[in-house]
Amino acid sequence: MPWSEILAQPLARRLGLLVLRRGSSGAFLLILAVLAVTAPNFLSPGNIANVFAQSAILGILAFGLTCVVIGGGSNVVAGGLDLSLAANLGLCAAVYSSLNNAGFDTVQAIGLTLLCGLAVGALNGFTVVVLRLPPLLATLASMNLIAGLELVLTQNSVLPTDSALLDTLAMGEWLQVPALAWMLLAVALLLGLLIQHSPYGLRLYAVGEYPEAARAAGLRVGLYVFSSYLIAGLCAGVAAFCSAAYFSGSTTGSGDMLLSVVAIAFLGVVFSRRLVANIPGTLLATLLLGFLINGFQLLNIASFWVNGVQGVLILLVVAMSSALRKEEGGL
């Protein structure tokens, strides 16, 4: 839509635009305020630290997805997407538990687990960059493959395990903040610096948004997309440790997290002026969801509602941002 058409719109619509812009942060604050008033102990430092810790697994996975979406563009069908993240976490957790139980030493077990996550990322990167499959299909297929591998490894059962690392992650505290919360913040900080404040991140945005421009500037576009899948794989590996710590081993059904991860990464988009996926936005979306679930628990609302609320949230946010985009021109 050219500027003249925007100007041609009545004041009310321009006002609506402003409301839409501020709406997402406003809604977040509103939800927090309502929960703070209604749910007992909601604002206690212990509870807040708890929410951070419980959000760690989902959040770290969502960071990985955010990187992929940035590098591949935000078109969900043709753009960047990694549906294998949750399955990758499951496999990594299973690999770590097996290695740990088989008596590998700490460094080896950790190294091999992260390597497993990276390998899955590399497989996705290969199918997307070299074979040029649409990411949606490529990662859907690899998700199936990886979930199968996890089943083979665990025979569809829980593999309990215990190690000093997991103990530290599960029980450790520093400044009265649990270790898992620190993990979430640390990964957010690292990726935030990499994606939002380094030339690499800027170039990744360019690759995702306008690959021709990136190519014309001499960037090797494929390499950047590939690297974003590697980051996602690594995130799955890191999240696997958090999951293993949280559940004292590998669990089944980690694939169920996938849709929440997708929801969070796309929710994060609205927390940015440019309406693009970004790490701080994803962190906010993770916490929003974490606070919601926590508030529901405190209010004794059945957990069955959580999915529905997530669904409504995605739809609301996406409808809002697509309206915003329509107002601002382009499709």
């Binding site: 929801a263 059945a302 609320v309 669904g311 995605i314 739809l315 996406v318 697509s322």
Partner: peptide, 23 residues
């Protein structure tokens, strides 16, 4: 009606559908 991309729209439906079924 709302101009949401099919991927995200049906994803939302899937979430809500799951929740409704659980309830």
């Amino acid at each position: 009606g709302l101009g949401i991309t099919p991927f995200l729209a049906t994803l939302g439906t899937l979430f809500i559908g799951t929740s409704v079924q659980q309830l």
